[in-house]
């Protein structure tokens, strides 16, 4: 293995207590990075051996738990799959845009959690089938109609990229809409009518401004913009009473 090279990182620091209060600041660290280092490895190196006061979230480091999303050189990214060798230096790592900052690279996710819940992301049925009668049948085609939208890892990169979020923080946003749409499209679900008020409501799909940024940054290729705009189409046709709402 080749010698690690020293890479300069500019990391955002903020704390509501002590010296880092105010508007936050960019702190520079020099990190020895082997060739296969990802940005998260560098952050962990800083935390472990340079500055233990740095706070960031992470867990699975294989791109599926969704906790290590940050702004890397201005673009929302999962730091566990952003290779240092692919980035321009110095590498600037900041907290996800469009979320209040709790501390350093940690952002406030409470509003996001509320938005997720608001779309009723669970199977709604008029009559539940008893488990002893087996599964609901669902063909591979029926599965495919929503499968892509079930891949969301709630990493919130799409919220950090969405230009609507900058000015309308109450917009329920790409991931929550994609999730609601995922259940609407599920052949086992009958909750479309219940979700309509939220998805097509004041903070719902109509706030989207077609930037498509959510889909550009989505690390799982969920394509939330597709979900948002399909939901617009369905909602518009339902508004015109051309299409019925499932479960109404």
């Amino acid at each position: 293995m080749s010698e690690p090279r020293i890479v300069k990182f500019e990391v955002f620091r903020y704390s509501p207590e002590g010296a880092e209060t105010g508007e936050g600041k960019w702190q520079t660290y020099e990190v020895p990075c082997p060739d296969d280092y990802v940005v998260l490895d560098a952050l962990n190196h800083i935390k472990d051996y340079i500055d233990p006061t740095l706070s960031h979230r992470w867990s699975c480091r294989m791109g599926v738990c969704g906790s290590c999303g940050m702004m890397v050189n201005g673009t929302p990214n999962l730091t566990c799959k952003s290779f240092v060798r692919d980035l321009e230096h110095p590498i600037r790592v900041g907290p996800l845009a469009n979320f209040p900052v709790v501390r350093d690279l940690v952002v406030e996710l409470e509003s996001f959690m509320d938005k997720l819940k608001s779309v009723k992301p669970w199977i709604i049925r008029k009559v539940e089938k008893d488990v002893k009668y087996g599964e609901y049948l669902q063909t591979p085609d029926e599965l495919d109609s929503y499968r892509q939208f079930s891949m969301c890892i709630n990493c919130c990169l799409c919220y950090a990229a969405c230009p609507v979020m900058i000015n309308e923080p109450d917009f329920i946003g790409p991931a929550a809409i994609a999730l609601g749409f995922r259940y609407n499209q599920d052949s086992r679900d009958e909750g479309e009518a219940e979700r309509y008020a939220v998805l097509a409501g004041e903070h719902g799909v109509w706030n989207c401004s077609y930037a498509n940024e959510c889909s550009e940054v989505c690390p799982k290729h969920v394509d939330p913009a597709a979900a948002v705009n399909r939901e617009k189409l369905v909602s518009a046709l339902q508004w015109l009473h051309i299409l019925p709402k499932k479960g109404a």
């Binding site: 509501p16 207590e17 002590g18 935390k47 006061t53 706070s55 960031h56 709790v102 501390r103 940690v106």
Partner: peptide
């Protein structure tokens, strides 16, 4: 090293 209370991961 981290004396602060808020989101102290140390």
């Amino acid at each position: 090293s981290d004396r602060s209370k808020v989101f102290n991961t140390e």
